[in-house]
C-alpha cells in the first residue's frame, strides 16, 4: 500500500520548472531510493514534500495516508509523521545533544535518548552533554540528526544524501539505522547519487531534469543508472530536457 503519493507534482522556481509532473507511489514500510545526477531535483522534491519555505507553491498534490498535505505547515506535516534529514544538518549553539534529542523525542526518558544514540553507533556518555554546534564533525552531526529522527518515530523519513561528508565507518552506522527504521515500521526515502547507498534500498526512482524517468527494483535500476547516468547521457540539462 502507498503511504505517500505524488500526483502530477510540479514546481517552478525562478522561472524554471524544477519538478516536472511527478507521479509516484511510495510503499509503506519499504526503503526507497531516489537517485539521479546533481541538479536533477531530488532535494527540491524532499523540500517540497516537507513543505519548506519557498517550496510550497506547487501544483498537483502530495497525499499522505490519504490526506492532501497541501495546506499543512512543516510542523503539521511532521506531526503526521513526515520528516526530513538535511544533506547538511543545521548546527545549534548552546543546545546539548541530550536536549536536542529530547526536544523532539516521543519518549523523553533518558534511556530512550541513550538508545537512539546507541542505534547510530555513538557512545551516549561521550556525546549527551556536548553541544550540537560546530565542535561536532559533519559526520557526527549527521548521525545525531538520524538519532533525533529515530527518537521521533516517524512514519515517513527522507534522508538527503545520507553518505555525503562522512567516512566509511560512519556510513555503516547510517545503514544500521535503516534497520532500526524498518523495525519501527518507518518508510524510508534515501536521496542519493551513490551506487553504494542505492544498494541498501529495495526500490528506486530515477530522477533526471525534474522528471521521474525510470523506476523499479534495485538490480534493474543499478544497471540503468550505470549505463545511462555515469556519465550522463544528455548532460542533465533541465532547460532542454524538462520541457
Amino acid at each position: 500500500m502507498a503511504i505517500l503519493e505524488l500526483r502530477d507534482l510540479s514546481l517552478t522556481l525562478g522561472g524554471r520548472r524544477i519538478l516536472d509532473n511527478l507521479t509516484a507511489d511510495f510503499w509503506e514500510g519499504h526503503v526507497h531510493a531516489v537517485v539521479g545526477p546533481n541538479g536533477a531535483g531530488k532535494s527540491t522534491l524532499a523540500s517540497t514534500i516537507m513543505g519548506l519555505g519557498g517550496y510550497r507553491d506547487y501544483s498537483g498534490d502530495i497525499i499522505f495516508e490519504g490526506q492532501s498535505l497541501k495546506d499543512l505547515s512543516i510542523d503539521e506535516r511532521a506531526r503526521l509523521g513526515v520528516t526530513l534529514a538535511w544533506q547538511e544538518p543545521a548546527r545549534f549553539e548552546g543546545i546539548s545533544v541530550r536536549d536536542f534529542l529530547r526536544a523532539t523525542a516521543k519518549d523523553k526518558s533518558e534511556q530512550s535518548v541513550r538508545d537512539v544514540l546507541d542505534a547510530v553507533g555513538m557512545k551516549p556518555d561521550e556525546y549527551l552533554s556536548r553541544a550540537v554546534d560546530k565542535t561536532l564533525s559533519g559526520g557526527e552531526r549527521k548521525k545525531i540528526e538520524l538519532a533525533s529522527i529515530l527518537a521521533m518515530r516517524p512514519k515517513f523519513v527522507m534522508l538527503d544524501e545520507p553518505d555525503s561528508g562522512i567516512d566509511v565507518a560512519s556510513l555503516q552506522r547510517i545503514f544500521d539505522a535503516l534497520a532500526a527504521f524498518k523495525n519501527i515500521g518507518s518508510t524510508v526515502i534515501m536521496i542519493t547519487h551513490s551506487l553504494t547507498v542505492l544498494k541498501h534500498a529495495e526500490h528506486a526512482f530515477l530522477m533526471c531534469c525534474g522528471k521521474i524517468v525510470e523506476k523499479g527494483n534495485i538490480d534493474k535500476m543499478q544497471v540503468f543508472f550505470e549505463q545511462n547516468c555515469i556519465p550522463c547521457d544528455h548532460k542533465n540539462r533541465p532547460d532542454v530536457m524538462a520541457r
Binding site: S73, D75, A78, T83, A90, F92, E93, A103, A131, S148
Partner: peptide, 21 residues
C-alpha cells in the same frame, strides 16, 4: 525548519533556539 520538521511548533522551536543562545 529542522526543529519544525521534527514536530515542534514555530514558537517551541524559537524558544529552544533562544534558550541555546
Amino acid at each position: 525548519e529542522t526543529l519544525m520538521a521534527r514536530g515542534l511548533t514555530e514558537d517551541q522551536a524559537v524558544e529552544l533556539i533562544i534558550d541555546g543562545l
